[in-house]
């Protein structure tokens, strides 16, 4: 974390617990987020990486106000917004926008593209009709939407085109922070590259800050400045992109790297894959959450839950065993 970087948003010790039914009469706590902390710096991209169900979307929804945190703080413009709904957030609401995973369900099917893009301007600005039109046309050029699209409905577009429209909707208010939740995973490979390039271009042009949520570690190489790796509702490793790719430390991060399909590496071998099941966020184990899948596990991993520990230069790792091996702890 270099001194020159300015924090735009701070997530501090955020917990999110959902009550879920586990039988006809029994309700249990599902720990979706466990003491999650990170900072997002102005103009930078932080990527949250992890597998399905690890809590990535939940983080995004807490920041957006769609979920209220059970505990902890989210500091934006000197205010704690962790427990505020969007409507309680006043002015702040328009400065944080989200692009959702599924381009099919995230756009209202009964509204023309024009209306979808104009609505936020009507609600949050006092632009005239002419100014709104101007703003929409300018943005169409930026995201590669043909003007003729504006009169059409979402179902008339392909997944990639819809995602462009969703990006336009998120950008129209020039938000300070964009939360992009798996914005390309529902798209075809040849379209993924187009959308990823578009997002990088827009970020550069508008100096926006981004939280990029993905399960695909090969994508984050191109888009991130910092990366946080999540597992079962907590951050297990955090570092700058350069440092994480050069020197992944946590056993889960290493497993992720070795299993990403890549044309230049052979299929992962049996030893990497000899692993147990993912634990459930309902009955979290004592000790390290990754213990059943970890090939470096020792006796102590089953007793004490490891803390995030700075292994130097703000490279945080939640695993005392690997840190001991490199002589840090």
């Amino acid at each position: 974390m270099s001194q020159s970087e300015v924090k735009l948003l701070e997530v501090k010790e955020v917990e999110k617990i959902f009550g879920v039914k586990v039988g006809a009469f029994e309700k249990k706590d599902l720990h979706a987020l466990n003491r999650v902390s990170f900072d997002i710096y102005k103009g930078k991209t932080l990527s949250l990486v992890g597998e399905s169900g690890c809590g990535k979307t939940t983080v995004g929804k807490v920041i957006l106000g769609l979920y209220q945190a059970t505990k902890g703080e989210v500091i934006f413009r000197d205010r704690d917004i962790a427990k505020l709904t969007p409507s309680q957030r006043g002015d702040i609401q328009k400065d944080i926008q989200m692009i959702f995973q599924d381009p099919y369900s995230s756009l209202n099917p009964r509204k023309k593209i024009k209306t979808i893009l104009e609505q936020p301007l009507k609600i949050h600005t006092n632009m005239t009709k002419e100014q709104r039109k101007e703003a929409i046309l300018l943005l169409c050029d930026d995201v590669g939407i043909d003007y003729s699209y504006l009169e059409r409905y979402p179902h008339q577009f392909s997944g990639g085109q819809r995602q462009r429209i969703a990006i336009a909707r998120a950008m129209i208010l020039k938000p300070e922070l964009i939360l992009a939740d798996e914005p390309i995973s529902a798209l075809d490979v040849s379209i993924q590259a187009q959308i990823l390039n578009l997002m990088m271009d827009l970020q550069e042009k508008y100096h926006a800050t981004m939280l990029f949520i993905t399960h695909d570690i090969s994508v984050v190489k191109h888009i991130s400045d910092y990366i946080a790796v999540m597992y079962l509702g907590e951050i297990v490793e955090y570092a700058s992109k350069k440092e994480l790719f050069a020197n992944p430390k946590h056993p889960y991060t290493k497993m992720l790297f070795s299993t990403v399909p890549d044309i230049h590496t052979p299929l992962a071998t049996e030893s990497v894959l000899k692993t147990g099941e993912i634990q459930s966020p309902i009955d979290l184990p004592q000790g390290c959450f990754f213990q059943n899948r970890c090939q470096y596990k020792e006796e102590s991993c089953m007793q004490t839950h490891p803390e995030l520990y700075d292994s130097g230069e703000n490279h945080l790792v939640r695993c005392p065993i690997v840190l001991q091996k490199v002589g840090i702890k």
């Binding site: 392909s158 990639g160 085109q161 075809d188 490979v189 040849s190 379209i191 993924q192 590259a193 187009q194 990823l196 390039n197 990088m200 695909d216 570690i217 090969s218 994508v219 190489k221 191109h222 790719f245 790297f257 990403v260 890549d262 044309i263 230049h264």
Partner: peptide, 20 residues
């Protein structure tokens, strides 16, 4: 060419224009 590569320092990805 348009696959993101783990060992690639380049920022932008190669892209095929248009759609099928």
């Amino acid at each position: 060419e348009c696959l993101p590569k783990l060992n690639d320092e380049k920022k932008r990805l190669y892209q095929i224009p248009g759609i099928m």
